[in-house]
Design a binder for these strands. Structure first.
Lengths: 233, 233
DNA sequence: AAGAAGGGGTGTACGGCGTACACCTCCCGT
DNA sequence: ACGGGAGGTGTACGCCGTACACCCCTTCTT
């Protein structure tokens, strides 16, 4: 829960001074609680016990605030390991990014939309990408192959690949859901797949689909493919 | 340009009747022109020469309208080829999806956000996914491997992988852009990569990066990796 | 010590948004 | 002839981002 400043608080102490960092932190916490859609300048201000316009002395506007929030999140990603070969270094980094994104489910959407809107990513993101490229280079990749590799990793670079059937259990059950038999008739292949996955003895709980395993499977498939190309291009 | 109904139009003819299809078509056209952010119920209504609330007789609300727009777009993707082996069938389909997404740059964002918000994709999207799975199955993939494959394709399934440095030339040049030498000092690896790509004699124009080539490179790397696994898992 | 300067919080206001709700108006089946 | 429902309208509410004028309190200059 983000603490909402009360009048008593304000009377008791002169209230901690506002700062860009405090604003960004509160914004991230608020987004974690209610999603980005529910995040508004007014709500952030209220949570900080301050009037909405006060925020604008520290952030230019809402988009700039979103950029700042991304920087906070990228800062949560582990720095690159320097004592291993490229493959495990990339692997660790990407999986660390993924953990961050699982902590902040709203992040991938914000990152994607802000990336599209800006001419250049923020310095923090640039640093992240740069060090990622550095790992490949140190691993003996040709500059051209690094270029391709960055594209291949694509969405996985920042640790996510929007999973189509993501496991978000706390969602209202569809009131007019289709009966299973109609489902099977209309989408035979989806049904077959769903059945196979559900009957997998390993995973009886949840969606019956181990997201983490799938993520690493995809990641390794990509990394193995890249390794085979190393040196040849 | 989406034609904005004038009073003269209204006087001349009793105006074509509203319909869900007409609304969705106008909404897509409007989004193509100005992006989704600029799309509002009020603007759609204005373009149709109608009062905003009239739309609500045909669509439940804005989210449901966005879902409908996605269906329109998915309908633009070529149906699967039935006379080739799985690999080219998938390849064609994914590339067709990609062409659709390049026509409607706002689409991937909407698809991603709506996918996250719904319990089940719309029937149109279900059909698309189902036939995609069908291609793999017909190609001799085990159900488990299809499952993995769907995850691997991930964002590429619908034809996109948000390219980090997308080639969107018509964007205001950053007023406080970093001078190249500082750029090179702070982000050496990015700079090296950018130079290598820019000096590639093949591509002097644009960003110096052939998005289409990169996309297919990534796609083929994935498909080749999957092919190696076929039968073994 | 007096006063100018300016960073940081406030209050008010504007235009835009999605959409609830009551209404009106025609067309259609009986 | 008429009752009802589908489809378009008008008004209104409560949100949103943020421009602009203000004011206070610190700090620095003279």
């Amino acid at each position: 829960m983000v603490e909402i400043a009360t009048q008593a608080d304000a009377a008791a102490q002169p209230r901690a001074p506002l700062s860009r960092a405090r604003i960004l932190g509160t914004a991230v916490a608020l987004a974690d609680e209610g999603g980005v859609d529910a995040l508004s300048m007014r709500k952030i201000a209220q949570a900080l016990g301050v009037v909405p316009m006060a925020l604008y002395k520290h952030v230019a506007n809402k988009n700039e605030l979103l950029d700042g929030m991304i920087d906070v999140l990228v800062g949560e990603i582990d720095p690159p390991a320097t004592d291993t070969e490229w493959k495990t270094a990339i692997r660790r980094r990407v999986l660390s990014a993924r953990r961050m994104l699982l902590r902040h489910p709203w992040a991938s959407g914000v990152i994607e939309s802000r990336m599209k809107a800006r001419t250049t990513p923020t310095p923090v993101v640039m640093e992240y990408l740069d060090s990622m490229i550095g790992i490949f280079r140190a691993g003996g990749f040709s500059i051209d192959l690094v270029h391709h590799a960055m594209h291949v990793m694509g969405s996985r670079l920042l640790g996510f690949s929007q999973e189509l059937f993501e496991d978000t259990p706390d969602r209202a059950p569809d009131p007019d859901a289709m009966p299973p038999e109609e489902m099977a008739a209309r989408y035979p292949h989806i049904t077959e797949l769903a059945m196979a996955v559900a009957h997998d003895p390993e995973s009886v709980v949840g969606s019956g689909c181990d997201d983490q395993f799938e993520f690493e499977f995809a990641l390794d498939l990509t990394l193995d493919g890249l390794e085979r190309l190393r040196g040849t291009v």
